[in-house]
Amino acid sequence: MSMDYREYILDHYRDPRNYGRLENPTVHVEDSNPLCGDQVSMDLLVEGDHVTAVRFQGRGCAISQAATSMLTEMVQGKSVQEVVRLGKDDILEALGIPISPARMKCAFLGLRVLHKSLVLAGLERPEHADEHDDEL
């Protein structure tokens, strides 16, 4: 399987979208990938049944940071119903390159943080979030 670092991935890595913090987020969650030290924290602002704002901060490899940046674009302004349904396939599709098995954890770090946030905000059942949290 060959992964290549496409320009749009490097672009998200160097110039991440929705980067930073929110002043009064509904929920703030951080997580890291103990094996490689990748870190992601995320703020969500939920108003009514929509995620009206999202910000993230992080450090780590290009795959983890670009995937999280892309994920925030899928979240911003969407209904909670839609956001809850975001899964691994959406990340892989957005990355658009084959991800080697060893790098899957990098690719899904942001997704894991998102679903933890949704659970913490009472918008998602923990059992459902667990589906996104299995170790491959």
Partner: peptide, 22 residues
């Protein structure tokens, strides 16, 4: 450049196996 990205590039484009991590 994160060592994981380095290791992926070395692997895929050059067939080089190195370690990346702690």
């Amino acid at each position: 450049i994160h060592p994981h990205d380095l290791a992926s590039i070395l692997d895929q484009e050059f067939g080089v196996a190195i370690r990346a991590g702690h």
